[in-house]
């Protein structure tokens, strides 16, 4: 199996912070807005270098979305940052009208997504955000897997013309993708080739899926691992090609079943190539307080559970 080196654990939100600064340096149209979460979103460096282009909105997310849309209409490239729940569920209608329907060039920087937000508990842990954003016509949905990829995804989002939902998180996770690999929106990345089962993962669960593939290899099961950092538009060709090759698919995500990557992949395969599938996700539950790793284990999103799911998928063939 292809080896990936963890160059040191880092949080994906810090990858966003670096990416935002680089995007701001490359293009003066980039502006950043936050609703009293500058530090949490790692916007400090951008704010220090471009004080005029950093816009503090206070704890008023609805207005932040509208103000960003207005800025975008005048030609700016606004990134709005808050916790995932507060830039999706809390402001769904604002995003729908001002950003998606209004087709404004707004980038939604969504930090602390999923249960790995940890100790704050369920009010702050959204497991529904991908479903909400996927449902909006034309919205691009990105969920990069580590620091480097989040940095690159941020730069790609700034260059892309149109609404983007960029999802990342709080915990430090292995940083293993190449620092200089440009992020290509809509392109799946095959991290490991395999012939027995496909593991399609997104976000924090990508590294766990690599660990699961290693464990499976020891048992003689060759798992293909796909990093699906773009959830919408989904790389359907990559999904179909891999499913055709392995004949069994597991989809892994730190998100609930309803409306997530699992259903997106299932939709493609049901239409094009019905394939035995197993889903690893937060099912139909709210989160709770705990450390990120304890929560990932408790909700069955770690390598151990992914490997079990892969064996179930193989058995369904």
């Amino acid at each position: 199996m292809k080896k990936y080196i963890d160059t040191g654990k880092k949080d994906t939100r810090s990858g966003f912070g670096v990416g935002l600064l680089k995007a701001g340096q490359a293009d003066k149209r980039v502006v950043a807005l936050t609703a009293d979460l500058k530090g949490s979103l790692k916007m400090d460096a951008f704010a220090a270098e471009f004080p005029e282009r950093f816009i503090q909105c206070g704890i008023a997310e609805a207005n932040m979305v509208g103000a960003a849309a207005g800025l975008a209409i005048t030609g700016k490239i606004p990134f709005i940052g808050s916790f995932a729940e507060f830039v999706t569920g809390r402001v769904y209608d604002q995003i729908r009208q001002e950003v998606a329907y209004g087709n404004t060039n707004v980038k939604i920087a969504s930090s602390h997504a999923g249960i790995t937000l940890g100790e704050d508990g369920a009010t702050h842990q959204t497991m529904e955000d991908i479903a909400l954003m996927r449902a909006l016509p034309g919205m691009v949905v990105l969920n990069p897997c580590d620091f480097n990829q989040t940095m690159q995804a941020t730069i790609a989002a700034a260059k892309y013309e149109g609404p983007v939902y960029l999802r990342f998180g709080r915990p430090s996770v292995p940083n293993f993708t190449p620092e200089d690999e440009p992020f290509e929106i809509g392109k799946a990345i095959v991290l490991n080739e395999g012939s027995d089962v496909t593991l399609i993962a997104t976000g924090h669960t990508v590294w766990e899926s690599l660990l699961a593939a290693e464990a499976l290899e020891a048992e003689g099961i060759k798992a293909e691992v796909i990093n699906m950092a773009t959830i919408k538009p989904l790389d359907e060709k990559a999904v179909i090609a891999s499913a055709r090759k392995t004949g069994a698919v597991v989809v892994v995500e730190e998100h609930n079943m309803a409306g997530g990557l699992g259903e997106a992949v299932a939709g493609v395969l049901a239409r094009e190539l019905p394939t035995p599938m197993v889903f690893v996700n937060g099912e139909d539950k709210f989160g709770q307080s705990g450390t990120p790793s304890a929560l990932m284990a408790a909700y069955g999103l770690d390598a151990l559970h992914i490997a079990e799911a892969a064996k179930k998928a193989v058995a369904k063939k």
């Binding site: 005029e52 932040m64 849309a69 209409i73 005048t74 009208q97």
Partner: peptide, 27 residues
Amino acid sequence: IFQASGSLGQGLSAAAGLALGKKLDKD
């Protein structure tokens, strides 16, 4: 038409964003 509207209460935010954009552009 500069922006979609209809779902109420949102236009003043968009207008504020436009006004801020003009300030940044020295328009």
